[in-house]
C-alpha cells in the first residue's frame, strides 16, 4: 500500500465514541467505538468492541476484542484476537486468527494461520494455510499450495458437543484443493492434491491425488483416485 502523505491525523477513541470514516494515519480504539464509513490508514488497532460501517484499507489491522462490520478488508497484515464478523471479504498478505471469524465473502492471503474457528461463505485462497481447530471451521472451498489442518488438544465436552455443534473442533468444506494437503478432523466432499495425507477423524467423499495418499484407519474415504 502506498500512502504518500504522512501528515494525516490520527484517530483515537478512548471510552465510548463515534467517528466518521476517512483517511487517517493511525487509528486507535480502546473501548467501544462506532466508525461510520470506509477507513483508510496505516495501522488500525481496535481494542474492545468496534462496529465498522464500511470497508477497511490498512497496512496493519489489529483486533483485540470484538469487531462487527460491513465491507471488505484489505490489509497487508491482519491479526485478530477475539471475534470478527464482517459482511465482506478479506484480502491480505498475512492473516493470523486467534478466535472466531465470520465472513460472507472470500478470504485471500499468502499466509493464513488460524487457531480457533471460522465461517467463510466463499473461498479460502492462500499459499500456506495452517488451521489449528478449536471450534467449528466452515468454508465453502479451500484452495492453495500447502494446506495443513490439525486438531489441537482435545477437551472433554460430554453431551455439550451434541447441544452446541459450534464448539466441536472440526473443519467442514465442500472442496479442498492444494499441492500438499494434510487434514485431521475434516469433513469434505472432494479433496484434490499432489500429495494428500488424511489424518484421524476425517470423512471424505472423494480423494484425487497424484503422488501419494495416506489414510488414517480411523477415517473414511469413499473413493480414492490416483491421477
Amino acid at each position: 500500500m502506498s500512502i504518500q502523505e504522512t501528515n494525516r491525523g490520527d484517530l483515537t477513541i478512548n471510552g465510548t465514541g463515534r467517528a466518521a470514516g476517512g483517511w487517517y494515519r493511525n487509528v486507535n480504539v480502546d473501548g467501544i467505538a462506532t466508525i461510520n464509513g470506509d477507513v483508510k490508514c496505516e495501522t488500525l488497532s481496535l481494542n474492545g468492541i468496534s462496529k465498522m460501517g464500511g470497508g477497511i484499507e490498512a497496512d496493519r489491522l489489529n483486533v483485540n476484542g470484538i469487531m462487527n462490520g460491513e465491507g471488505d478488508i484489505a490489509a497487508n497484515t491482519v491479526a485478530i484476537d477475539g471475534k470478527v464478523r464482517m459482511h465482506g471479504s478479506v484480502a491480505g498478505d498475512d492473516i493470523r486468527l486467534n478466535g472466531l471469524l465470520k465472513l460472507s465473502g472470500d478470504c485471500e492471503a499468502e499466509n493464513v494461520i488460524v487457531y480457533g474457528g471460522f465461517e467463510v461463505s466463499g473461498l479460502l485462497n492462500a499459499g500456506h494455510i495452517e488451521i489449528g481447530l478449536q471450534a467449528r471451521c466452515r468454508v465453502n472451498e479451500i484452495g492453495g499450495s500447502s494446506i495443513r489442518v490439525k486438531q489441537t488438544n482435545k477437551r472433554w465436552m460430554g453431551p455439550l458437543r451434541y447441544l452446541v455443534p459450534m464448539i466441536v473442533p472440526r473443519l467442514e468444506s465442500k472442496l479442498i484443493e492444494g499441492d500438499d494437503v494434510s487434514l485431521e478432523a475434516t469433513s469434505a466432499g472432494v479433496v484434490r492434491g499432489r500429495s494428500v495425507i488424511i489424518g484421524p477423524g476425517c470423512t471424505i467423499g472423494r480423494v484425487e491425488y497424484k503422488t501419494e495418499l495416506q489414510v488414517d484407519p480411523s477415517s473414511t474415504v469413499r473413493e480414492r483416485v490416483q491421477i
Binding site: E108, A126, G143, S145, K174, E177, D179, G189, V190, R192
Partner: peptide, 28 residues
C-alpha cells in the same frame, strides 16, 4: 499446480468470470 493456479487467481491474473462451476458425477 493447484498452488500456482490459486496464486494467479489471487493476483487477479485470471479473471473471476473464467471460473465456471458445474456439477459433474464426481461432484463440483
Amino acid at each position: 499446480s493447484y498452488g500456482q493456479l490459486y496464486r494467479w487467481k489471487r493476483k487477479r491474473l485470471i479473471p473471476e468470470e473464467w471460473f465456471i462451476r458445474k456439477s459433474t458425477f464426481t461432484g463440483q
